[in-house]
Design a binder for these strands. Structure first.
Length: 562
RNA sequence: UGAGGCGUAGCCAAGCGGUAAGGCACCGGGUUUUGGUCCCGGCAUUCCAAGGUUCGAAUCCUUGCGCCUCAGCCA
């Protein structure tokens, strides 16, 4: 079993209980699920929950899970999304085998089912305008009124529907409706529209159709056609379940999938709707769907998240029916936990400050051994050059040491990781008072970072030989929104006003080990003492290295310092 | 109630009549050549509220309260 595997969760959820019952009662002899995205946007972490659930269930019960595109609205759907969705599901580690399907594959069958409904007197062509239809539908508390076209003869309906298909009417002029109950308390059942006219070019069927089936008619039949046993969806479709069942009953489909609803995922400090995510992309508040600040799968991937960490996250949050807002700290925790064991360590000095080792020979270069991963001996080690002029982190030096501070300050001794103990002897400033360099002496008897006399040093800091270090750009990412609930905006403001102005800080003068410059795009590692980073998939080159911060290391000193 | 769904810790979430799992967060302490990791300890006498049934209730019943979904020719 893999880390982050759905099956890793010891406790089962209510959906598994339902499946167990269906298997035990003999209602089903196998399990078939499906992940049914509409190709009108990129997948996000909320979809990951559904993907892991559906594919995980199939795996657990030795069944199968289909990837089916719900492509019934050509005006919103694009091939770019079809491609990104497949890439993202695969990246998460799932395989749909031969079962890549499109609702549009069933357009012919769906049309036949519509004819059947008409013949049974269960559907009719309605001429009401969109506005009239809305008025006739009634409200939440008042029943609707029956359409004047509701009782057309089967023959007339057949002819009209055929004309709709033949393109004899304009968009909006006619629709096909299921004849159910205009007085139903469930608005979904008030003669729902099941076909509308739309003169759009479809990405798969081209211009073959000018009428397209609606979700409620398409989804249940697609599930049934594919032999899906358990159709798992989110809670907002609960009301649609009556219609799901009604359609299958009405066409007398022998196989009856069972719809089960669970609560969708919400994360604090971000938004999780394709509409809003699309707005962020279109209005350039982010660089694209794969901007590392986006909660999209592609954004997380570019940020440096691993499929294992995302899967682990989805298994930890559970599956239930209560509305929830999960703390994004849990997602970050899952990444740290995964990377702590897997990621090699390397040194990068984010805000470089020159450190001169006064008693180290001018032109000498000493090679020192550095462990690649203290959590994994098999990761081995590498050699780091040590010279008279080094770079250390600006944050690791203070002109006066506050309480509990054990980094570098005049008179203080610290360990340069993997190298030597050094004692600070002084520092220089420019005319504005900015620190320009720090000076220290090293103890040659502490090579490797161990003292012979057993004296201890509290602080260990990282460093890089100035003449060997390479330059890099590092993008420090923080939460996209500065408020836990971005939707909670004051009067006259929108979620956009809650964007975090410091969600991206670009560091242009970062010093890195040579190996980091030579890494390929998408290389994930830990920058010693600062965080986990990933070389940018799009912008990183050996000549011009670019790293993204996936997540910082936990920092208990920061808490004391503030 | 027009119809439906849901209320267990700051955030998720087990629990299915036998006396509140686990994770994240948070707070202590120990180890440590990452102020990381790891380890140890703390963190709901109470489950939305109030009644009732029962030897025993988060679990069953009753009545309230609160939150969410639905009035696209979107999915």
């Amino acid at each position: 079993m893999l880390k982050g595997d759905y099956m890793e969760t010891g406790t089962s959820n209510f959906i598994e209980e339902i499946i167990n019952d269906d298997l035990k009662s003999g209602k089903n002899s196998n399990v078939v699920t499906r992940f049914p995205p509409e190709p009108n946007g990129y997948l996000h972490i909320g979809h990951a929950k559904s993907i892991c659930l559906n594919f995980g269930l199939a795996k657990k019960y030795n069944g199968r899970c289909h990837l089916r595109f719900d492509d019934t609205n050509p005006s919103k759907e694009e091939d770019e999304y079809i491609n990104s969705i497949q890439e993202d599901v695969r990246w998460l580690g799932f395989d749909w085998g031969d079962h890549l399907h499109f609702a549009s594959d069933y357009f012919d069958k769906l049309y036949d089912f519509a004819i059947l409904l008409i013949k049974e007197g269960k559907a009719y062509v309605c001429d009401l305008s969109a506005d009239e239809t809305r008025e006739y539908r009634g409200t939440l508390k008042e029943a609707g009124k029956e359409s004047p076209y509701r009782n057309r003869s089967v023959e007339e309906n057949l002819e009209l529907f055929s004309n709709m298909k033949a393109g004899k009417y304009k968009e909006g002029e006619k629709v096909l409706r299921a004849k159910i109950d205009m007085k139903s308390g469930n608005i979904c059942m008030r003669d729902p529209i099941i076909y509308r006219i739309q003169y759009s070019h479809h990405h798969r069927t081209g211009d073959k159709w000018c009428i397209y089936p609606m979700y409620d008619f398409t989804h249940c039949l697609s599930d049934a056609i594919e032999g899906v046993t358990h159709s798992v969806c989110t809670l907002e479709f609960k009301n649609n379940r009556d219609l799901y069942d009604w359609v299958l009953q009405a066409v007398n489909f022998e196989h009856r999938p069972r719809q089960i609803e669970f609560a969708r995922l919400n994360l604090n400090y971000t938004v999780m709707s394709k509409r809003l995510l699309l707005q962020l992309v279109r209005e350039n508040h982010v660089s694209g769907w794969d901007d590392p600040r986006m909660p999209t799968i592609s954004g997380l991937r570019r940020r440096g998240f691993t499929p294992e960490s995302v899967r682990d996250f989805t298994s930890r949050i559970g599956v239930a029916k209560a509305d929830n807002i999960v703390d994004i700290a849990l997602l970050e925790h899952c990444l740290r936990e995964d990377l702590n064991k897997k990621a090699n360590r390397a040194i990068a000095v984010l805000n470089p400050l020159k450190l001169i080792i006064e008693n180290f020979p001018e032109n000498e270069e000493l090679m020192l051994e550095a462990k690649n991963n203290p959590e994994d001996e098999s990761a081995g080690s590498r050699m780091l050059p040590f010279t008279k002029e080094l770079f250390i982190e600006r944050d690791d030096f203070k002109t006066e040491a506050p309480k509990k501070y054990f980094r570098l300050a005049p008179g203080m001794e610290v360990r340069l990781k993997f190298a030597f103990y050094v004692t600070c002897t002084g520092f220089s400033t420019d005319d504005k008072g900015n620190i320009t360099e720090v000076r220290a002496t090293y103890d040659p008897d502490t090579k490797g970072g161990w003292s012979q006399d057993g004296r201890k040093v509290k602080g260990t800091i990282h460093w890089l030989s100035a003449k060997h270090a390479k330059n890099a750009e590092v993008r420090i990412y923080d939460r996209l929104f500065q408020t836990a609930n971005p939707y909670d905006a004051p009067e006259g403001k929108t979620f956009l006003d809650n964007l975090n102005p410091e969600s991206l800080t670009t560091l242009k003068n970062v010093k890195i080990e040579e190996s980091l410059a030579n890494a390929e795009p998408g290389y994930i590692c830990q920058f010693e003492r600062t965080g986990y980073f990933c070389s940018d998939i799009k912008d990183h080159t050996h000549e011009r290295p670019v790293y993204n911060r996936a997540v910082p290391l936990r920092d208990s000193w920061a808490k004391i310092d503030n």
